[in-house]
Design a protein around this nucleic acid. Structure first.
Lengths: 248, 248
DNA sequence: GGACGTATGCTTACGATGTAAGCCAGTATA
DNA sequence: TATACTGGCTTACATCGTAAGCATACGTCC
């Protein structure tokens, strides 16, 4: 290799060059881009995005921070790699005959993946590049196929694809950010402190819905959203079928 | 004030205590939490989230970094304040008689706000606290009212509220992140380099939809999503009305 | 008017971070 | 065997958030 390339093709050397099996960090193989990214991902999952530092990754691998630069471009490259690593884990479930059920399954799988790495939403929202990694391509193919089978036009298929993708991403972002619910079941706001801010007569709906705003089952909410989305698509397809048959 | 409080109630001093009108940074008034947050927001909008540093904010205000700590707790407090500042800008459009149009208008307004501050999505996804600021309460009230008028139950109203919120957030996140489109009209991937990775026969749908994946009109996509969501909700309400009348 | 506490700005300093530059020991190749 | 290269290490630097302490101006009370 001339420079630190992004290729994930890793040669397996029998012995690490100049590698002294050090104390503390457990070194169980040669240093690779792959191992660096997996370590960074684990750190992110366990301690958050800010915990990813070059020195930290190095310590975890029993190596100095600067050694990492032989395998990655810079820290951005690490974060980029972590994103791709997570995305590459995605497996679109094998489609079934019913497109609705296939869509549901795909959306659930996508959601599960994001929830398994809660900080990846933030990470993905930081990066400003398209997802088009080759590994992500097969799932996209599946998703497009399933949605197309629902009876959508080509353009609508792509739009629906983005719609589901965006919904899942937004929904997970709000869930892991505790944005619209109490934290750990604790109330978002008690009626008392609410009353201190705004006269209750001004926010009748809010007070009326407060119980449902407090306790919130993310899974149930997600399924509700899926139902609505699918019903909406079904309605659109059916309506077009009707007007088409009326015209033709 | 004993300590640096989070209250935005600011006393207006006639003259800044110990304030020497300095060079470079233009000081046009007393240093306040408000001015700090507005400056941080502007920096974020113009140069990104990472450009927000205490020293940078200070320079912009003609003040040393440490002086900021008289008005804000720490950097997290600044970011928190910026979030709230943006959120407080939201104005739910005055509802009209048609709930669908009201929902559309509300979602568009929420989207416009996020697009006006593209980095706020990342910022919001970093913070792990509910949105419950008092200013955000009025828009929530409006939204709940509008959705309830659509004929949803209380629980469904809250779920639909979260659904629209999540959809808008996810959709904007994907748009500003260029996740599912070519960057600036540049192709996501040319058929050639795609063919080098995967045999075209394996991804027929992808190739078929490629033109639509490339050129993407975010506004149009967003409206498509809105249509689907609203159609889905309409279908749900109508179906319940039908079964209810059949039962009763 | 003078003394004093408080609010608010400034200076200095410390540890952490990303990373440029250069060093050095093994390995592969001529 | 001489040489170049690979992949580790060490050192050094600019920048970051912020703790500690100092200086100055104001409001308040005698």
């Amino acid at each position: 290799m001339k420079k630190t390339e992004r290729a994930s093709g890793n040669v397996t050397l029998p012995a690490p060059a100049g590698g002294s099996a050090s104390a503390g960090g457990h070194r169980r193989g040669p240093l690779t881009r792959e191992r660096i990214l997996r370590t960074a991902l684990r750190i992110m999952d366990e301690e958050g995005l800010d915990a990813i530092t070059m020195r930290r990754i190095g310590r975890e691998l029993g190596v100095e921070a600067m050694s990492l630069y032989n395998h990655v471009e810079d820290k951005d490259d690490v974060l980029e790699g972590v994103s791709e690593l997570v995305l590459s884990e995605f497996e679109f479930p094998e489609p079934v005959e019913d497109w609705e059920e296939s869509v549901r399954a795909g959306a659930r799988a996508w959601r599960s993946l994001l929830l398994a790495h809660p900080n990846v939403c933030t990470l993905l929202s930081e990066r400003r590049k398209p997802i088009g990694s080759p590994e992500a391509l097969k799932p996209i193919e599946y998703a497009l196929d399933v949605l197309h089978r629902a009876g959508l036009t080509e353009k609508e298929t792509v739009q629906a694809f983005r719609l589901f993708g965006g919904y899942v991403m937004g929904s997970v972002t709000m869930q892991v950010g505790n944005m619209m619910t109490g934290v750990d079941g604790a109330p978002l706001m008690t009626p008392e402190e609410l009353g201190a801010v705004l006269p209750p007569a001004r926010v009748p709906r809010f007070l009326q819905m407060l119980p449902h705003l407090q306790e919130c089952d993310p899974d149930e909410d997600f399924e509700f959203g899926l139902d609505v989305l699918i019903a909406g698509i079904r309605a659109r397809v059916r309506r077009r079928a009707r007007t088409a048959s009326a015209t033709g």
